[in-house]
């Protein structure tokens, strides 16, 4: 891929990703982690426990299951898998953007 190729040249010259790249990488990492943790909290402890009564009554059912109950027993787990997939994808992208992609 051309973008990767360009970055490769860049780092062969400067040996290390620059100070700026490192700082920006860490900040973006923190932002991503915060967002994902927010989603994580809302789908599990939020939807499954704290607000489950409201979810059960006010929102539509999943099949025959009240939404809060379903989130606690099934939905949250499905969301967790999605969260991890998004994390993996976004971090790999971020590493590419900030020049941390390895040669292989």
């Amino acid at each position: 891929m051309p973008t990767h190729y360009k970055r490769q040249i860049h780092f062969t010259m400067s040996e290390q990703p620059s100070e700026l790249h490192c700082r920006r990488y860490w900040q973006k990492n923190i932002t991503l982690v915060m967002i994902l943790l927010g989603v994580w909290f809302v789908v599990s402890l939020g939807a499954g426990i704290l607000f489950r009564d409201w979810l059960d009554e006010a929102l539509p059912k999943v099949g025959n299951a009240p939404l809060g109950f379903w989130m606690a027993q099934q939905g949250s787990i499905i969301c967790f898998v999605i969260i991890l997939y998004v994390y993996k994808h976004m971090m790999n992208k971020l590493e590419g953007e900030e020049g941390f992609t390895s040669k292989k």
């Binding site: 982690v33 994902l36 943790l37 994580w40 599990s44 402890l45 499954g48 426990i49 109950f69 606690a72 027993q73 949250s76 787990i77 967790f80 969260i83 991890l84 994390y87 971090m91």
Partner: peptide
């Protein structure tokens, strides 16, 4: 329903483990 604590707890912990710890 009460047992959901195990379901969410053990799988949800994996999210923490992955984005906060192991890398």
């Amino acid at each position: 329903y009460d047992a959901s604590r195990f379901l969410m707890g053990w799988t949800g912990g994996f999210v923490l483990l992955t984005i906060l710890m192991v890398p």
